[in-house]
């Protein structure tokens, strides 16, 4: 099987990685770069635990080949906090007790951040729609919805408008 030397920017740092053709972005992040914040829940694009930003849009990293990311920019949950300061959506998830086991949380946070980046003032229906690809078995979701809604208000109040 062919291997490829790719160059990919991960959380702001340019990485040169040797990847086989069939390696997914998820596996590359976790096993080549040691970025284990991104989780593997189903390897089939259904659970959303592996959601990361690829060129500023959220994707299921289990359904992207690493080799496809040559030249791309990837951001994971590890990039959300800046200099020790949590992203408003991270803080809001803590404040609302919207985390329990924490395994879906990294993917939820990426989907939520992506939503707020494209729509700073989402309705509850829009939040539900944006998170429908992030399965959570612990919380019952409503705390997560509230956390995202409040993070939007915090974002609007501080006019920081997200992490980009």
């Amino acid at each position: 099987m062919a291997h490829h030397r790719i160059s990919v920017t991960v959380n702001g740092s340019v990485e040169s990685v040797d990847v086989p053709s069939n390696m997914t972005l998820l596996t590359m992040l976790r096993e080549k770069l040691g970025l284990t914040g991104t989780k593997n829940g189903c390897t089939a694009g259904e659970c959303g635990a592996c959601t990361v930003f690829l060129n500023d849009e959220p994707v299921n990293s289990c359904l992207v080949l690493a080799v496809e990311c040559d030249g791309a920019e990837v951001r994971t949950v590890e990039s959300l906090a800046r200099k020790g300061k949590l992203d408003p959506v991270q803080q809001s998830v803590i404040d609302h007790n919207a985390v329990q086991c924490g395994f879906c949380t990294p993917g939820v946070l990426i989907s939520a951040r992506a939503l707020l980046d494209r729509n700073p003032d989402p309705s509850e229906e829009e939040i539900r729609d944006a998170l429908v690809g992030n399965l959570c078995r612990c919380t019952g979701y409503v705390r997560i919805l509230d956390a995202v809604k409040d993070a939007a208000q915090v974002g609007a109040a501080s006019e920081t408008g997200g992490s980009r």
Binding site: V77, L80, Q91, N97
Partner: peptide, 12 residues
């Protein structure tokens, strides 16, 4: 606040 919340939202 949960003891484990911070490390769970940062991916640590």
């Amino acid at each position: 606040t949960r003891l484990d919340a911070h490390e769970k939202v940062t991916g640590e």
